[in-house]
């Protein structure tokens, strides 16, 4: 007799006091001072809770967080290649569906969260992410967007805004504006092309309550969901480490982040 697959219902919060105190992303990593993506990881892990499986496609949050015999992840976590975060998530979700249906795993379906950087989500990892959303796997794809390939030394990515200065797009005499192309619109791209997808949102590390609620909404939907989380990178954007939240706040209403993304929306 096939067992029914039960999913978790994550509660939405109203204020900072309701943010869970349990940490799933604990000290022991080696990210830079004022790291936006690390803050993003911490908040998403709090939102998803203990019954979760996290996937880390290669990126700065893989290289700076895990080192052999040392880990900041208190939840089950696996590395995936930068190309295949979505594919691995699909496999894990399908495996848990079968294990629960056959009664080999007792408990509710874990929250499966892919924590991909902008390269692992919208550039190199786009094919696998698109496949996961197309097939309708019950997983959350989070893109922590620091607008560059920060792991390898701040190279341009499709999320780097027009005029961005990176090591691949240095402003000079020939090209004074630095980066000449406009960034991709990640949320629109995933919404527009994936009929099985029911939830997409954009969030910022400057607004943790909003971020946690959007992550939880995404997890509550039965099917693929996408959350684009803007996460400033002091090292890459060359601002003082203590100003991460300030920069994130300034980015959200006025800057390039707003121009290329639509507000949170469920279809």
């Amino acid at each position: 007799m096939a067992k029914k697959v039960e999913t978790q219902e994550m509660e939405l919060i109203k204020g900072l006091k309701q943010v869970p105190q349990e940490e799933q992303y604990v000290p022991g990593h080696r990210t830079c001072q004022g790291c936006g993506p690390a803050l993003c990881y911490k908040l998403v892990a709090k939102a998803a809770g203990a019954n979760s499986i996290f996937l880390g496609p290669t990126g700065c949050m893989y290289v700076a967080n895990t080192s052999y015999l040392c880990t900041p992840f208190a939840m089950p976590w696996t590395h995936t290649q930068i190309t295949n975060g979505g594919a691995v998530a699909s496999g894990i979700e399908a495996a848990y569906q079968v294990l629960i249906r056959k009664g080999k795993y007792k408990g509710k379906l874990p929250n499966i969260v892919v924590m991909a950087g902008d390269g692992g989500a919208i550039d190199i990892g786009l094919q696998a992410a698109s496949g996961m959303m197309y097939r309708g796997h019950d997983a959350l794809f989070v893109m922590y967007d620091n607008e560059s390939y920060a792991n390898t030394g701040i190279q341009t990515s499709p999320m780097t805004p027009y005029g961005g200065k990176t090591t691949f797009t240095p402003p000079g005499k020939a090209i004074p504006e630095g980066k000449k192309t406009f960034p991709k619109d990640a949320a629109q791209l995933f919404i527009g092309g994936h009929p099985a997808m029911h939830y997409a949102a954009t969030a910022s590390v400057a607004y943790p309550v909003d971020l946690i609620n959007k992550v939880r909404k995404g997890l509550n939907y039965k099917g693929p969901a996408f959350v684009h989380i803007h996460s400033p990178c002091p090292k890459g954007w060359l601002f003082d480490a203590k100003k991460t939240i300030q920069v994130a706040k300034l980015s959200t209403p006025i800057s390039t982040f707003r121009r290329r993304t639509s507000p949170s929306r469920s279809i």
């Binding site: 895990t66 052999y68 880990t71 976590w77 408990g107």
Partner: peptide, 22 residues
């Protein structure tokens, strides 16, 4: 297995100085 009741981490980064011993 990747099981929330028994958390484990898979595939962490190996640094250059850890390579020869492994």
């Amino acid at each position: 297995p990747l099981d929330p009741t028994k958390p484990s981490n898979h595939g962490p980064q190996i640094y250059a100085d850890q390579g020869p011993a492994i």
